[in-house]
């Protein structure tokens, strides 16, 4: 037991989790914005935008996240020398956020589209009938109802995103939790199982409230019909 507790003096586990929380937070916001725009493309009356939305979703949803994040580090950063900050670590951190965002945006788009499917066609027809064109109708009538119908699937995307933030290791963000776990296991092979369990528990604690919150919110905010 003392051995186990001494781990926390040597390694800053909380700081590592904090990196994952920050990655997830920024990536969630960016993915929500990109995913909403993509969903708008997919439901828009303009074929080229529909095509772009569908192509984006199919490319990013079907590419492993590890490859996207490794490409961010090796392709964008190392080869193309695209740097998003003066500091090396900050730059890698931001590139990882970009990678996580573009990947999860595809899932956000599909979650919102499933929300759009919960909105009866008559709502869009009524919006058009009073003279709203596509964008105002989407913004005022369709999307507000679609988001409320998409809370549960969006929650699932957020949960996946938090866990997937560990893949940032593939983008050389070495300060995040799974990288620290690897280091700890390397140096304390006597405590492999407690170390595993510590990190597993950490993510469970992070994720459980989100599941509870989205279940509650999707009931509370459901649109009465």
């Amino acid at each position: 037991m003392e051995d186990y507790l001494s781990l926390f003096e040597t390694y800053d586990v909380l700081a590592a989790f904090w990196v994952n929380i920050q990655l997830s937070f920024w990536a969630a916001i960016c993915a929500l914005i990109i995913g909403t725009v993509l969903a708008l493309f997919r439901i828009s009356p303009i074929p080229s935008l529909q095509w772009f939305g569908a192509a984006y979703v199919n490319i990013f949803r079907n590419t492993p996240l590890t490859i996207i994040l490794a490409f961010g580090f090796l392709g964008l950063f190392s080869v193309m020398q695209i740097s998003l900050a003066a500091d090396l670590n900050a730059s890698l951190f931001r590139i990882a956020i970009v990678g996580l965002s573009v990947y999860h945006a595809a899932f956000v788009c599909e979650a919102i589209r499933s929300g759009v499917n919960t909105v009866p066609l008559g709502q869009a027809e009524a919006a058009r009938a009073i003279g709203l064109s596509f964008l105002p109708a989407a913004r005022l009538i369709i999307l507000p109802q679609a988001f409320r119908g998409a809370i549960a699937p969006l929650g699932n995307v957020l949960i996946a995103l938090i866990k997937n933030s560990t893949v940032a290791a593939a983008g050389s963000v070495a300060t995040e939790a799974s990288s620290l776990m690897k280091t700890m296991i390397e140096f304390r092979s006597d405590l492999v199982i407690p170390i595993f369990l510590t990190f597993a528990l950490g993510f469970v604690i992070l994720v459980i409230p989100i599941g509870l919150l989205t279940t509650w919110a999707s009931r509370k905010l459901a649109v009465a019909r």
Partner: peptide, 30 residues
């Protein structure tokens, strides 16, 4: 379309907006 009023079989009131907002939305936004 703004000049053509339409009343549907299934009402199609905007489900997330109050009765008042349903009626004011068109005049304000359109």
């Amino acid at each position: 379309r703004a000049d053509v009023g339409m009343v549907f079989q299934s009402f199609n009131l905007f489900a997330h907006k109050s009765i008042l907002e349903n009626v004011t939305l068109g005049p304000i936004k359109v």
